[in-house]
Amino acid sequence: MSDIKKFMFVNRKAPYGTIYALESLEVVLITAAFDQDVSLVFIDDGVYQLKKGQQTKGIETKNFSPTYRALDGYDVEKLYVEKESLEARGLSEEDLLVDVTVLGSKEMGELMDQQDVVLSF
């Protein structure tokens, strides 16, 4: 396919409390299969999606956090986390289960400006 667009997925919601994070991840995997330029950004409570050590047995819900580690295999390598959101939640890069690029708010905004399609769920 010749037309490659820049898709950005903006994740601002925490996992488990609602289904948005899981169903968003399903779209990301499909978009990667279409050979598009995919970026994932995690802002606000979205950063909790990447927290290490999620154990969902007690809430009898599927733990989908290992999927973020599998994204690499789908050539989804652009994962960005907003620095201010991490700090506001007492988290640092070491708390996250994948390698990410940490960006300041305005750097994140510039990246968003450059996209063709911005999707948020």
């Binding site: 601002r12 802002i43 606000d44 907003e82 201010e84 708010s105 305005k106 994140m108 905004g109 510039e110 968003m112 400006d113």
Partner: peptide, 14 residues
């Protein structure tokens, strides 16, 4: 809700 705050923090202009 914090959506507007988040938008104002991240977005540059527009």
């Amino acid at each position: 809700n914090g959506s507007l705050d988040c938008c104002l923090r991240v977005a540059e202009s527009g």
